[in-house]
């Protein structure tokens, strides 16, 4: 099977498996709620399901990367770097706007008290910190590994 066909097949398998597992996770949680699972049980089940999804996507990302030729790999890395960095930078003013109560200002009915603001900040910082930390760690690792 040629490179592009293998790439498309792996991509299709990855998307179908990911969607299947995501639906299974949502159904499991709904059944759990109907059966009266406690909140810790739902949190643990949901977190484990999310970890399984990430693991599956990580495995398929490796397969996809191996199916690509050098130009496709270069294009993908460039898209993630340029697009990801642009998205990250654009998110900063959006974060400031929402964090300072912009949504509450636009939609006064929105529940945007201090607790919601703290939850929003924590969620944003996690999403901002993890990719940045990942990029820094990977950069350091490649520098040290080449010595």
């Amino acid at each position: 099977m040629s490179g592009p066909s293998r790439l498309h097949r792996n991509l299709l398998i990855g998307v179908v498996c990911f969607a299947g597992l995501a639906v299974a996770m949502v159904l499991t949680l709904r059944i759990g709620v109907a059966m009266g699972w406690s909140q810790p049980a739902r949190i643990i089940a949901g977190t484990a399901g999310a970890a399984a999804l990430v693991l599956l996507w990580g495995l398929f990302a490796i397969r996809l990367n191996r199916s690509m030729d050098e130009y496709q790999r270069w294009r993908e890395q460039r898209a993630w770097y340029v697009g990801g960095l642009a998205g990250l930078l654009l998110s900063v003013p959006a974060y400031a706007f929402v964090g300072l109560g912009g949504l509450h200002w636009l939609f006064p009915a929105t529940d945007a008290g201090p607790a919601a603001a703290r939850a929003f900040s924590s969620g944003y910082m996690l999403a901002l910190f993890m990719p940045t930390a990942g990029a820094v760690i990977y950069g350091l690792w490649t520098r040290l590994a080449r010595r």
Partner: peptide, 9 residues
């Protein structure tokens, strides 16, 4: 042994 897009690029 590469994609057509690679040749084009």
């Amino acid at each position: 042994g590469v994609s057509r897009q690679s040749v084009n690029a």
